[in-house]
Amino acid sequence: MTRSFLALRHIAIASSLLFGLVSQHARAAESGTITIMVGGITKLIYLPARLTEQLGYFKDEGLDVELLSQPAGVDAENELLAGAVQAVVGFYDHTIDLQTKGKEVKAIVVFGQVPGEVEMVSTKAAETVKSMADVKGKTLGVTGLGSSTSFLTQYLAGQHGIQSTEYTMLPVGADASFIAAIKQGRIDVGMTTEPTVSALQKSGDGKVLVDMRSVEGTKAALGGTYPASSLYVQAAWADAHKAEAAKLAHAFVRTMQFIHTHSAEEIAAKMPDDYQKDKPLYVSALKASLPMYTSDGKMPADGPTTVLKVLSAFNPSVKGKHIDLAKTYTNEFVAAK
């Protein structure tokens, strides 16, 4: 009886805390604050989120925006569906996956025309792993199981006829935890982004195996552009808050234009110091990342079909399902002004 009572009490406390979190953000939304959850705010693939805030573009639009961070896009997606946040800066592919689950979510600004992801091989394993054709029997690191990195990893291996049962996928997160996994030998190969890529190259612990930071590299790996980092919202929120959605889109488009008209050094100078503890490394990583960004926030014409092709191959939720790609994104708001 006592154990049952305590168990129920713990459940009640946990539920209360979750309810409190959602309620807190709901109250913030009512007061006019737009809360955006970022799937790893220090990642350069999501640079436009913090840069827009730093440049003052949200305030220029009369918006009160709060940026929060979760280490993985899957967690950010759950916050959106729970109503705890109004928008997510994460991978576009979540909108396709969610449609199969009866959730209508759409990208309203596209930041990355390519994933910005890099498949890294540890220096220790580099002698035996020369390409993704050599990953059989290896341990492959991803940010999380069921994440965008896991589907991309499976697709790249599958291109060489290697099934997902022939290697181990290990969730190791990003940034410091990814670097630790490489250094400790817990993974042989792993998918990550800048500035982690440059940090591993600088320390000599990792080498580039597949580079999807540029359009050319992404087309070679995936067969087309692969829109990734984006701002996505629930379709119902966009329909009910068209003015706010347009202002958000306009603020971000200004940022994309800033990125395309300024050097890596000039962009880095606008970012907080704690994002670039090693400034030369940060600038170098940013230079390598600049080709990934769109200039206008619009969806690349061939992008959605490439993403659907990848997800249909390895995402059990998407495989064999009919997807209405027109409902997964819109250029309406980026073209509003």
Rank of each mutant, 00 (worst) to 15 (best):
G83L: 08
G161W: 14
M256A: 06
M120A: 05
F151P: 00
G204K: 05
H322Q: 15
H250G: 09
I96P: 06
G173D: 08
K298H: 03
T128E: 15
Y232L: 10
D239F: 03
T123Y: 02
S177H: 06
L281W: 09
S31G: 05
A49T: 00
K43E: 07
I34Q: 05
A181S: 13
V88T: 12
L200Y: 09
G190I: 09
T128A: 15
S31M: 04
V121M: 11
A76R: 00
V105P: 06
E53S: 14
S229W: 05
L8Q: 06
T95A: 12
E104A: 06
L222W: 01
V142I: 09
L21N: 03
H262V: 06
G112T: 04
G204S: 09
A240K: 15
D64T: 11
I41E: 11
Y167M: 12
M169F: 08
A87W: 08
Q24N: 07
I96T: 14
I11C: 06
H25L: 00
E244I: 04
T225L: 14
S15L: 15
S147P: 01
R50A: 02
Q159C: 05
G303S: 05
T330H: 13
G112Q: 14
K136I: 04
T139H: 13
A336E: 08
G217P: 04
A326E: 15
S23F: 07
A245G: 11
L18E: 13
N331M: 11
L311P: 01
N331D: 15
D75A: 14
Q54N: 08
E332R: 12
T330D: 13
T261L: 05
S203Y: 01
T328W: 05
A313R: 09
S69W: 00
P316M: 13
L156Y: 00
T52G: 06
H241D: 04
G217W: 03
K43P: 00
D205M: 07
Q24C: 10
A335Y: 00
T33D: 10
A49N: 04
K277L: 12
S312G: 06
K287V: 14
K321A: 14
T153E: 13
F111T: 03
K298F: 00
F258N: 05
K309P: 01
F178T: 06
M212D: 07
V215Y: 02
P48T: 03
I13H: 04
D93N: 15
D188H: 12
T143I: 09
K138W: 03
S122E: 02
S147T: 03
Y155W: 04
D134R: 13
V307K: 02
A313F: 01
G190C: 10
K337C: 02
M169W: 01
D134K: 11
G90S: 15
I179S: 08
K106Y: 00
I96E: 14
A236N: 12
A157Y: 03
A76S: 15
P227R: 13
A26P: 00
